[in-house]
């Protein structure tokens, strides 16, 4: 299996998975089930995470395939721009879903509905153009392959970094700020579970969690800008995909405190269960691993 194969596996997740998440969400509104609604939030958040490697492996697939097959560069670029455009509402939907799990407000429903509809439409568009790259048979006879030239989201992001030499260093600083926010709050939340930070209910410490999610968001945006500006530097480095894998596991661990906060962990003196303790140690280990791989990227990948 190579990364092109991985892209083929992953690229169905944001479309099919998003459809499932959207269906669950709408169903929860119709039958007014809170459990179903929370379930759909979890699905949307996980799909938003999975959409990240779906995008990243696309560049790797292009690199792997371009020497073996005749590819329309125009179509590939259009697919990439469409995918980037679709990723934006997708990630925002993931953020709203997580926030709604953390502390539900009614406006979350309207925001999520809107973002999911937009994301579904844009994902379908990206998928269609992507399919035409290697499957010309899906284009109606006599019609031209669809290669919309606008808006060029991926090209715009790359140009932003490449044309302005100050953008990369600024993004590096922000990437560290985001890292500190994420790691600091995650550490505190998990130290509470482990009893190092004692005598405080989980609900109080969990108030800080949106700052961790904010750090995650800052690092997603800045990390994406690095990737857009210099994709081959990352797609040709196995350590990068291990890092992204750990980021996704770490992202899922951010769900944990929103799901189990009421599970007896709410009491200041409650002894956390073994499972909760393992999750806490695991979460710290995963984020430490992310920092490790991020730091070792230039040394591990470059032979």
């Amino acid at each position: 299996m190579n990364l092109a194969h991985l892209h083929l596996l992953l690229n169905h997740v944001p479309t099919v998975g998003l459809g499932v998440g959207f269906g669950l969400f709408v169903a929860s509104l119709v039958v007014r089930s809170e459990d179903l609604r929370r379930g759909s939030f979890v699905v949307v958040f996980v799909i938003a995470l999975a959409a990240i490697p779906a995008y990243l492996t696309g560049n790797a697939a292009q690199f792997a395939v371009q020497d073996r097959f005749e590819l329309s560069e125009e179509l590939v670029a259009a697919h990439q721009d469409a995918a980037m455009l679709a990723l934006i509402p997708m990630e925002l939907a993931g953020l709203v879903a997580w926030t709604a799990l953390w502390r539900f407000r009614r406006w979350h429903l309207a925001a999520l509905l809107l973002l999911l509809v937009v994301a579904l439409g844009l994902m379908a568009r990206a998928a269609t153009i992507g399919g035409e790259i290697r499957h010309p048979e899906i284009v109606a006879e006599g019609a031209a392959a669809s290669a919309p030239a606008w808006p060029r989201a991926a090209a715009f992001g790359a140009a932003l970094v490449i044309d302005h030499p100050w953008v990369w260093p600024i993004c590096e600083i922000l990437h560290f700020v985001g890292l500190c926010l994420l790691f600091g709050v995650v550490l505190l939340v998990n130290l509470r579970t482990l009893g190092v930070v004692g005598n405080v209910p989980a609900t109080h410490v969990n108030r800080l969690l949106p700052w961790a999610m904010g750090g995650f968001g800052v690092n997603l945006v800045t990390g994406m800008l690095f990737f857009l500006a210099s994709p081959d530097q990352y797609t040709q480095n196995p350590a990068f995909f291990w890092k992204i894998g750990l980021v996704l596991v770490g992202g899922v661990t951010l769900l944990y405190p929103t799901l189990v906060a009421e599970d007896g962990d709410g009491q200041p003196d409650a002894r956390a269960s073994i499972v909760a303790r393992l999750a806490a140690v695991g979460s710290i280990a995963v984020w430490t691993g992310v920092i490790f791989l991020g730091r070792f990227l230039p040394y591990l990948g470059a032979e």
């Binding site: 500190c180 994420l182 790691f183 600091g184 550490l187 505190l188």
Partner: peptide, 8 residues
Amino acid sequence: TLVGLNTA
């Protein structure tokens, strides 16, 4: 660790 916890 230092800056993260201090920030929190």
